[in-house]
C-alpha cells in the first residue's frame, strides 16, 4: 500500500478539504451533514466508473465505451424490472453486470487479439452500443422502471451513510486488494510499464487485458444500474456527461495516463473532488460558461502542481 499512498494520491483529498473550507465561507450549508452525505451519494456514480477506468488506465489503455455501457445496463435493468415478471425483475442487476462483462470481453478482443488501439476500438464499440440502444428503443426514452433493490442501492441509507457510497467503497476495496496483493495486480501494472517484457516473463498478457476490461465493463454497468435507480428510469445519453469527468478523476488521483503507476485510493479522492467541485460551482449559480472554464482551469492547475512538485524533487 506504500505506493498507493503517495503524495499524488493524497492531493485530491487536500483539494476536497480546501473546497469544503472555501465553500463554507460562501455557503454555510456546505458544512451540514445533509449536504456532505448527499455529495458522497452522488460521488458514488462517478466513483464507480472511475474505479473501472483506473484498472484499464493502469494497464496503459483507455475505455471510451463507458457512456453506452452505462446507458445499456440502465436500459436493460429497467426493462427487465418493467416487464413485471418477478423472476426477470430479480435478475435485473446480475443481468446488467453480465452485460457489462460481455462488453468488456468484446473490448478485450479488439485490444488484446486484434491489437487495435483501445482508444479507437472502445470508441467503435461505444457507437455500436449506441446503435443497438436506438434500434431497441426506437429513439424514444426507454420504458421500464427501477426495482426496490436498485432504488435502495442508489438512494438508501445504512448507518447514516448512503448505500451507494458503501457499495463504491466496497468495490474499490475489493479491487484494491486484487491490485496490490495478487499476481493479477502485479501483471496489470507490469503490462502498463512494458507489455513486451511482461509477455517475455511468461505472463499470459491477453488474459490480463481481458480481465481488466471485463472489470471496467462491470463497474460501468454497476454505475448505470445505480443511476437508473437514482432517476427511477433509464434515458438516452445518460452516460455521455460522465466520460470525461471519469478520466479527469483518475488522473487527478495521481494515476499516470501512460499506465503502470497509480492506484484506487487516489481515484476515490479524485471522484470526490470532481463531484464536490461541480456541486459547489452549481450551488454558486455561476452560469454554464464560467463553470466550464473554472472546471478546466482547476484540473490543469492540479496537474501542473503534480509535475512541478516532481520537477523540484526528482
Amino acid at each position: 500500500m506504500g505506493r498507493a499512498l503517495s503524495i499524488d494520491s493524497l492531493m485530491p483529498y487536500f483539494g476536497v478539504v480546501l473546497l469544503i473550507i472555501a465553500g463554507s465561507f460562501l455557503f454555510p450549508q456546505v458544512l451540514s451533514a445533509d449536504y456532505l452525505t448527499q455529495q458522497l451519494q452522488i460521488a458514488a456514480f462517478l466513483g464507480l466508473l472511475a474505479t473501472g477506468a483506473t484498472v484499464v488506465i493502469l494497464l496503459g489503455h483507455i475505455d471510451l465505451s463507458v457512456p453506452w455501457v452505462l446507458t445499456g445496463a440502465a436500459i436493460l435493468s429497467t426493462a427487465l424490472v418493467g416487464s413485471g415478471n418477478p423472476v426477470l425483475s430479480a435478475l435485473a442487476v446480475p443481468a446488467a453486470l453480465a452485460f457489462g462483462a460481455l462488453i468488456g470481453v468484446i473490448n478485450g478482443i479488439g485490444v488484446a487479439i486484434l491489437r487495435i488501439p483501445s482508444m479507437v476500438w472502445t470508441l467503435a464499440v461505444n457507437s455500436m452500443l449506441l446503435g443497438l440502444a436506438v434500434l431497441n428503443t426506437g429513439g424514444f426514452n426507454p420504458r421500464g422502471e427501477s426495482s426496490a433493490l436498485m432504488i435502495t442501492m442508489a438512494s438508501g441509507d445504512l448507518l447514516g451513510l448512503p448505500v451507494s457510497f458503501l457499495i463504491w467503497i466496497a468495490v474499490s476495496a475489493a479491487l484494491a486488494y486484487f491490485l496490490t496483493r495478487t499476481p493479477f495486480g502485479r501483471y496489470l501494472r507490469a503490462i502498463g510499464f512494458n507489455e513486451k517484457a511482461t509477455f517475455l516473463s511468461g505472463v499470459s498478457t491477453p488474459s490480463v487485458v481481458f480481465a481488466a476490461f471485463a472489470i471496467a465493463g462491470m463497474c460501468s454497468a454497476l454505475g448505470g444500474v445505480l443511476l437508473a435507480g437514482y432517476a427511477n428510469q433509464a434515458y438516452q445519453s445518460m452516460g455521455d456527461p460522465f466520460l470525461l469527468p471519469t478520466i479527469a478523476a483518475v488522473v487527478i488521483g495521481g494515476t499516470s495516463i501512460l499506465g503502470g503507476r497509480g492506484g484506487l485510493f487516489g481515484t476515490i479522492g479524485g471522484a470526490l473532488f470532481i463531484t464536490l467541485l461541480t456541486s459547489i460551482l452549481s450551488v454558486m449559480q455561476i452560469d454554464d460558461a464560467w463553470r466550464n472554464i473554472i472546471f478546466g482551469v482547476i484540473i490543469l492547475a492540479m496537474l501542473l502542481f503534480q509535475t512541478l512538485r516532481k520537477g523540484a524533487a526528482p
Binding site: I247, A248, I257, A289, I293, G296, L300, L303, T307, G311
Partner: peptide, 25 residues
C-alpha cells in the same frame, strides 16, 4: 508543463467550450 497531451486537451477543451458559451450562450 510536461503533462500528457490527452489530459491537457481534455482540460483545455472544457475551457474552450466555456469561452464559446460566453460568446454565444
Amino acid at each position: 508543463g510536461r503533462i500528457q497531451p490527452i489530459v491537457v486537451t481534455l482540460a483545455t477543451a472544457s475551457v474552450f467550450v466555456g469561452a464559446a458559451l460566453l460568446l454565444r450562450p
